[in-house]
Computed example of a mutant assay.
Amino acid sequence: MICTSCGPLTPTRRRSPPAPGGRPPPGSARPRAGPGRSSGRPTDTALVHAEAVYGRALRAAAEYAVAHDAAELMGAEVVSTRHRVRALRRHWIPRLREALDRAELALEQAEHEDGVRRRWAARTSER
């Protein structure tokens, strides 16, 4: 059987369902602990190598999962930031510019009126 998520070159094994009563299916060669056998780490070279490869693959998968989640979070932040920038460009900045223009116009008007009053006051005090 070929694994669809890993690619076409990664064969996978199907596990047979457990036999009734919780016993392993007949013909399964699973070593059991007993006299002269260790129940800890495997002693066969191929099993030791497979265990090491499995450990590296597991660590690589965990690192990939962390990196993938971080990339998804960053992508979500980028989208959120784009929305905020769009709102600033379309709504807030034009409104603030209009308010600034109104404030500058009012200031110019006040300065002009103040100048007119000063000139008028200067003319009336000279007379």
Rank of each mutant, 00 (worst) to 15 (best):
D101I: 00
E126R: 14
A57I: 01
T124P: 00
L107V: 09
A62W: 04
G55K: 15
R127F: 04
A121V: 01
E77C: 06
C3E: 11
A50W: 05
S28I: 10
D114V: 09
R102N: 09
W120S: 15
A33D: 09
T81P: 00
V85S: 09
M74H: 12
G27V: 02
R15D: 06
T4Y: 14
A61C: 09
L58A: 14
R119K: 12
T4W: 09
A70V: 04
G75H: 06
T81N: 12
C6Y: 12
R119P: 01
T4E: 15
E126V: 01
Y64D: 04
S38M: 06
R84P: 00
P17A: 13
G40D: 05
R89G: 02
G22P: 00
V66F: 05
L58C: 14
L107M: 14
S125D: 05
A57F: 11
E51R: 12
P11N: 04
G75V: 02
E126G: 02
I93N: 04
R15Y: 07
R102G: 02
L58S: 15
P11A: 08
D101V: 01
A70T: 12
S5G: 02
M74T: 13
G21V: 01
E72C: 03
A87E: 12
R82G: 03
R14K: 13
Q109T: 10
A61Y: 15
L107N: 07
L88M: 12
R56Y: 06
H68T: 06
T12E: 15
A62N: 06
G36M: 04
A110E: 09
R119H: 10
C6A: 13
R102D: 12
S5L: 13
G21N: 02
V79T: 10
L88C: 05
C3R: 05
A122N: 07
G21Q: 03
E63L: 13
R15C: 07
E77F: 14
T124R: 07
R32H: 05
V85C: 09
R102P: 00
R97W: 02
A65S: 09
R117K: 09
H91K: 12
V85A: 07
G40K: 09
A67M: 11
V53A: 11
E104G: 02
A122Y: 05
G21S: 02
E108G: 08
R119E: 14
C3Y: 04
A46H: 05
A70C: 07
E63R: 13
I93R: 04
L73S: 13
L105Q: 11
L96D: 03
A122D: 10
R59N: 10
E63T: 13
P94N: 05
G40Y: 05
E98Q: 13
P25R: 15
H83M: 15
D44H: 12
S5N: 13
L100Y: 10
P42D: 02
P42I: 01
G55Y: 15
